[in-house]
């Protein structure tokens, strides 16, 4: 396995060794396509946060499998606009059992939340992984007081949920590139006809994954390690 730093993956330096299949910006799977919602700087911060949640091992990290692209498209779309979110005020503080009560639509919440991260540990670029891990733990436990209108736990809940969705959702949404997430667990995808195999006990199912927009010949898993 080649070794390379997280920075080299994120910023495309030194990507020649064993990483030929990766786009130049690993987090910008739609290489050369500008982000729809995120600024470049936000995308870089987000890649660091997502990769803290889903780091690279034998399988790609979140950003390497397109999760930042996924989140960008979600923020630009119905999720970001709060199309299924009741937004009428007032917005008093609730209990955890009462769920999302932010006055912000998700797109605003992410933008303010990403900016607020910097108030805790400064620019995320160049932070050691241990600092990012600590930041994530703090966010998940609602610890750091973030400047502005975004609660730490609220931001963590959305970040965690969408990172996970991007890694495992159908690739038509921009993440799960090369079916990385589905290969990792062994999920065969959107075509399911198991009448004759459901009770064939303990027989591994070996068909490669196929998604909704599957192109024949593209299901091979090209992750190089």
């Amino acid at each position: 396995m080649p070794t390379y730093s997280r920075r080299s993956v994120l910023f495309g330096f030194g990507a020649a060794v064993g990483l030929a299949s990766l786009p130049r910006h690993a987090f910008a799977a739609l290489d050369g396509t500008p982000f729809t919602f995120l600024t470049d700087s936000e995308a870089r911060s987000l890649a660091l946060l997502c990769d803290t949640l889903i780091p690279q091992d034998d399988f790609p990290s979140a950003s390497q499998s397109g999760v930042v692209d996924f989140i960008d498209l979600q923020l630009a779309g119905g999720y970001g606009r709060g199309e299924h979110l009741y937004m009428d005020g007032p917005h008093p503080q609730g209990t955890p059992e009462q769920g999302y009560q932010s006055p912000l639509r998700p797109a605003e919440l992410w933008r303010e939340g990403l900016a607020a991260m910097q108030t805790v540990i400064g620019p995320l670029d160049g932070q050691p992984q241990s600092a990012l891990d600590r930041l994530m733990t703090d966010l998940s436990e609602d610890r750091p007081a973030l400047v502005g209108r975004v609660g730490a736990k609220t931001f963590f809940t959305e970040l965690h949920a969408l990172t996970n969705q991007g890694y495992f959702a159908d690739p038509i949404y921009g993440g799960n590139k090369g079916y990385a997430g589905w290969h990792m667990v062994g999920f065969p995808g959107a075509f399911g006809y198991f009448t004759d195999t459901v009770d064939a006990h303990n027989r591994p199912y070996r068909q490669p994954p196929m998604g909704i927009g599957h192109q024949p010949g593209t299901s091979d898993f090209n992750w190089e390690r």
Partner: peptide, 22 residues
């Protein structure tokens, strides 16, 4: 119809068949 219906994000996560809380 499959495969379009077999979209976990759209239907299981974003609840496309359910009421809109708005």
């Amino acid at each position: 119809a499959a495969p379009k219906e077999h979209d976990e994000l759209k239907y299981a996560v974003h609840h496309a068949h359910m009421i809109n809380t708005r």
